[in-house]
Computed example of a mutant assay.
Amino acid sequence: MLDVRFEAILRSVAELPDDLPITGEQNLRSELGIDSLVLLDLIVNLEAEYGVELRDELSADVGTVEDLWLEVSRAVTP
């Protein structure tokens, strides 16, 4: 289950419409249209919001919304 803050940041940074359902299975690139620059911006915003530091190679490793959420949640609760 996605965190409300996580979803709000995802929608804001990726400029996703409010009425677009977000699911963990969605591919960040092909389904949500998030390119590498937007993904980096998204990671920076998530790090700031949650007060964590995510792996440098994260942008190459995540494919889905759930992949990204799991990385954030792991960083928050080590």
Results as ranks from 00 to 15, higher is better:
M1E: 10
M1V: 14
L2C: 06
L2G: 02
L2A: 15
D3H: 11
D3E: 13
R5A: 13
R5L: 14
F6Q: 03
F6W: 10
F6A: 02
E7W: 08
E7F: 07
I9D: 04
I9E: 05
L10N: 05
L10S: 02
L10G: 00
L10E: 01
L10M: 05
L10D: 00
L10P: 01
L10W: 01
L10K: 02
R11N: 02
R11A: 02
R11I: 04
S12L: 12
S12T: 14
V13I: 15
A14M: 06
A14V: 08
A14C: 12
E15M: 10
E15Q: 12
E15I: 09
L16Q: 03
P17S: 11
P17V: 10
D18A: 12
D18C: 03
I22E: 03
I22C: 09
I22H: 04
I22A: 05
G24I: 14
E25R: 14
E25G: 15
Q26C: 10
Q26Y: 12
Q26A: 15
L28N: 04
L28Y: 04
R29Q: 13
R29G: 06
S30V: 11
S30Y: 10
E31D: 14
L32M: 06
L32D: 04
G33E: 05
I34A: 05
I34W: 05
D35T: 06
L37K: 02
L37G: 06
V38Y: 01
L39D: 00
L39I: 01
L40N: 09
L40M: 14
D41V: 01
L42R: 00
L42Y: 00
I43Q: 00
I43G: 01
I43A: 01
V44Q: 02
V44Y: 03
N45A: 15
N45E: 14
N45D: 11
N45P: 03
L46S: 00
L46A: 01
L46K: 00
L46C: 01
E47K: 07
A48C: 05
E49D: 08
Y50C: 04
G51P: 02
E53V: 12
E53D: 08
L54K: 04
L54M: 09
R55S: 08
D56T: 11
E57C: 09
E57M: 10
E57P: 00
L58A: 08
L58W: 08
L58T: 08
L58Y: 07
L58H: 07
S59I: 15
S59C: 10
S59Y: 13
S59M: 10
S59D: 13
A60T: 14
A60L: 14
D61M: 15
D61C: 14
D61I: 13
G63S: 11
T64S: 15
E66A: 15
D67F: 07
D67N: 15
D67V: 13
L68M: 11
W69Y: 14
W69N: 03
L70I: 11
L70F: 12
L70Q: 14
E71H: 11
V72E: 01
V72Y: 00
S73E: 13
S73D: 12
S73R: 15
R74G: 02
A75M: 03
A75R: 06
A75N: 03
V76H: 03
V76M: 11
V76C: 08
V76T: 10
T77V: 09
P78A: 09
P78D: 06
P78S: 07
